[in-house]
């Protein structure tokens, strides 16, 4: 099935608001063989839907994302957050594999805003993302569980190497071990902004119904800094002990999270460690050796100086 046929099928099914034109824009994503190609489907001279195609033929990632999006939509049904998550329109056979077609959300990626607006932009992005994540936490809180077996199961699903898995098990005692709906990859590139507000949160392929939501929330401060200091794996002192706009926003956000989620410093410590474990595991899965080394160094840096960093937050 070609992209033209998919466009015609969608047009017939009337699941998209306006007539789709068969003309498409192809965007070639990163991550090498593990990445995806995106085809934007146009109608009225603007993108209305997008089709994601995996580069590898037998890649379960699209089916997984389709299921995740359906789950997220059902979790958020009736809330204002539902419109900020892509609507899955179908899985279609496409060029020997499958294409996941979903609705298009207009907006600029948070990572691009960082490049334009530097630390002040990063501070604003952090504020918006934390606020969105807290809303998501509240709307999905009834699905959260604090069961030890479920926590261990969730940790196993991260597919960590043995030594990191052992480190992860030690972290589950704290509140950071709460399992529940979690985006799983809440980085600036997956936050879409429009007119200074969050337009959408994308890339739900790492969503877990029983993931670590506190890690998502606390990890945002580090994931934005990853983009802000892409060549400096020793960036943690800058964000936890610094005095610039972003460091101030980090302190403010962590205060908000601590009061909203009733976290103590040990919980923050555990959440950040889990964030690094997950980042290392994702980079390993996608064969991104450079980023894996970056996160490994940052993890070591946190481990060595965390008392110092946490005292700055106290």
């Amino acid at each position: 099935m070609s992209i033209q046929t998919i466009a015609q099928m969608l047009k017939r099914s009337q699941e998209v608001p306006a007539a789709l034109s068969p003309s498409a824009v192809l965007y070639s994503g990163s991550r090498g063989d593990h990445g995806c190609v995106t085809l934007f489907l146009y109608g009225d001279r603007r993108p209305l839907a997008l089709a994601r195609v995996s580069r590898r033929l037998h890649d379960p990632v699209l089916e997984q994302e389709y299921e995740c999006l359906r789950m997220v939509q059902s979790l958020l049904a009736g809330t204002e957050l539902a419109s900020q998550v892509e609507m899955p329109l179908g899985l279609f056979p496409f060029n020997g594999g499958q294409a996941l077609v979903k609705s298009y959300i207009a907006g600029t990626s948070g990572s691009h805003c960082l490049r334009w607006k530097g630390k002040r932009g990063a501070a604003r992005l952090l504020e918006l993302t934390v606020s969105w994540s807290l809303d998501f936490w509240r709307h999905t809180s009834r699905h959260q569980v604090r069961d030890q077996d479920r926590q261990l199961q969730s940790l196993r699903e991260l597919h960590l190497p043995a030594e990191l898995h052992a480190a992860g098990c030690g972290l589950l005692e704290s509140k950071s071990g709460v399992v529940g709906p979690s985006h799983g990859d809440l980085v600036p590139a997956n936050v879409l902004l429009c007119d200074g507000r969050i337009a959408g949160i994308i890339d739900w392929e790492n969503f877990h119904a029983f993931g670590f939501p506190v890690t998502d929330l606390v990890g945002v401060v580090v994931s934005i800094a990853d983009y802000l200091y892409p060549h400096d794996a020793q960036f943690l002192p800058r964000i936890f002990l610094g005095h610039d706009a972003y460091a101030r926003a980090v302190r403010q956000s962590l205060q908000t999270l601590r009061s909203e989620l009733e976290l103590d410093l040990a919980d923050l410590d555990a959440a950040i460690q889990l964030y690094f474990l997950r980042a290392v595991s994702l980079c390993r899965r996608w064969n991104m050796e450079q980023y894996r080394a970056f996160h490994e160094t940052a993890r070591q840096s946190w481990f060595s100086h965390r008392k110092h960093f946490l005292s700055g937050m106290a």
Partner: peptide, 12 residues
């Protein structure tokens, strides 16, 4: 790498 064939997604 498979990325060099991304453009073929436009081809039937």
């Amino acid at each position: 790498g498979r990325a060099r064939a991304d453009w073929t997604m436009l081809v039937d």
